[in-house]
Design a binder for these strands. Structure first.
Lengths: 138, 138
DNA sequence: ACATATAGTTTGATTATCAAGGTAAAGGAC
DNA sequence: GTCCTTTACCTTGATAATCAAACTATATGT
């Protein structure tokens, strides 16, 4: 099982490097890591209710309420009434929030482009296949 | 560049899933995420001085001092004098710290084993190659 | 119509974190 | 050797993120 150990090491290393990359990128902005992450999820997955957003972010709804308050005050997101469920709030990016998201996403793309600089298109396809399989197993 | 976008999505998804997996695993233990991460780094990379550890963890030495205090009190790590540099402290896992690390590492291995369940050995080798290339580019 | 479950907010306490300032030691420049 | 600068770590005070639990309003099932 040396192969497994090696893969584990590489995945952990990748995770740690991604983590510090994200931290350093966020430090350049006016927003915190938690705030950028919230924007990221809303930008990638689209508007959603508090409950769902809290689950995706891995925090309680109480925590999210506080974060959403800040982002609303910063003008990046808005609270909207849910059309069917009057208990629910739908959180949606404002135009400014969209801008922030696109800018951040572009940095991600640039990073991935750099990371795969020495990976051939065929290998890249294989990598994509592996990632799909792995993500499905979580 | 649709391929790039797709890879970016998959990597982000993988990162997020790893993150929540780690969080849920840590929640079962008596230690916090920051503490487990400290143990993880010491276990994988071996004993090192405060400065180096702080860099690997992405925190200031001030923050690390506080965390190390807690882990020393918990009996998982020890502060040792650096043999050459009398300003420096070498942080090292105790026997109990090693046990915690091995237990945590085993869970990582089990996870990776599950994740790669549907990946052939040949694909796995290719995946390892890709990860090595990507980690080198960070 | 009533009981129970769910969505979101508020509150109080805890933890992690940083920046800035302090101490001690190392490493050069002279 | 003596000073100056840099480095390593610790301490402190303030701030941000987080949770659990209590609360309000609405939905859902019996």
């Amino acid at each position: 099982m040396a192969e497994l150990e090696r893969l584990n090491r590489l995945l952990t290393e990748f995770y740690d490097k991604m983590s510090s990359w994200e931290q350093s990128v966020v430090k350049e902005t006016d927003y915190s890591l938690a705030q950028v992450h919230t924007i990221e999820v809303l930008g990638c997955c689209g508007a959603m209710r508090m409950k769902e957003l809290a689950e995706k972010l891995g925090v309680t709804t109480g925590t999210l309420t506080v974060q959403v308050d800040k982002l609303v005050r910063a003008g990046l997101i808005e609270r909207r009434a849910h059309p069917q469920d009057r208990r629910a709030i739908v959180v949606v990016l404002t135009e400014e929030g969209e801008v922030i998201h696109r800018r951040h996403n572009q940095m991600h793309l640039t990073l991935v482009e750099e990371l795969t600089r020495h990976i051939s298109p065929e290998q890249e396809s294989l990598l994509i296949g592996c990632l799909e399989k792995m993500n499905r197993e979580f």
